[in-house]
Write a protein that binds this DNA or RNA. Structure first.
Ligand SMILES: [Zn+2]
Ligand SMILES: [Zn+2]
Ligand SMILES: [Zn+2]
Ligand SMILES: [Zn+2]
Lengths: 125, 125
DNA sequence: TCAAGTTTTGACAACCATTTTCGTTTTCGC
DNA sequence: GCGAAAACGAAAATGGTTGTCAAAACTTGA
């Protein structure tokens, strides 16, 4: 793992929420790094390819990334305000999606499941 | 509902799967319509605002739309090959997401749940 | 150590879906 | 018909993301 890729991974780990490539680029530059935007995109591509970071799309279509604690299959509960995320897992939903797919004769069934809300902290204000 | 918006809605209804704005624009032009791309985008915006069509994002971040049979809350089982979609509903997953949110003190909890696979037809080849 | 080859990097341009702008056309109430 | 208001569409602007390519950094073998 190259130094630059590590730097991106670390910048991502510093946050508990999902960050965009542009966010991370801004963070790194603010920290004095001379990294280029292209390199940030390349690092995130590599990191998500290798499964080291999770990626999802915002409603606006922007890709956002997160360095999760586990590499096992899981989902997220994301705060709509501060973007903080909690890793969640649920045998229930895993079983349910598999059944739905099988019932309709679909093969190679996968799923995307994300839960959104306003976290306890942000709910106060 | 203006004529142009109806045309877009109808073009969408002609397909059982999710289509992008560009797809629909191509369909309509191929049918001889003189509609503009901007108008297709505006129509889709209005249709999704009013809840007449469902919208989701592809992995590439492109917005795709579908004219569903019901306006009630539901999810989709989408074929990865031909993009045909089946409307599905599940009290199970509704309950599960609500519980997960409550457990972590989140308010205003919503969710996105989509199931992907290869449909029976496309699985043959 | 040094030269030659390989990989990584980053400035810049290119892409492409989507939105804005703005002048023209259509629709609708009177 | 007439004029205001809404809808249209072509073209330009936007913004995230990817492609290009020459320079910089790192490896390797002599
Ligand atoms: Zn929050
Ligand atoms: Zn799952
Ligand atoms: Zn199919
Ligand atoms: Zn639901």
């Amino acid at each position: 793992m190259s130094t630059r890729r590590e730097a991106v991974h670390q910048a991502l780990t510093a946050s508990s929420g999902f960050r965009s490539a542009q966010d991370l680029y801004a963070d790194l530059r603010a920290d004095g790094s001379k990294i280029g935007l292209t390199t940030v995109y390349r690092a995130l591509q590599a990191l998500s390819d290798s499964g080291d970071v999770d990626v999802l799309r915002t409603d606006e279509g922007e890709a956002v990334y997160r360095a999760c604690d586990t590499e096992d299959h899981h989902h997220h509960l994301v705060c709509r305000v501060c973007s903080t995320a909690v890793e969640i897992e649920g045998p229930t939903v895993e079983r349910w999606t598999a059944e739905i797919g099988a019932q309709h004769g679909f093969t190679g069934v996968t799923h995307t499941v994300e839960v959104f809300g306003t976290c306890a902290e942000c709910s106060k204000s």
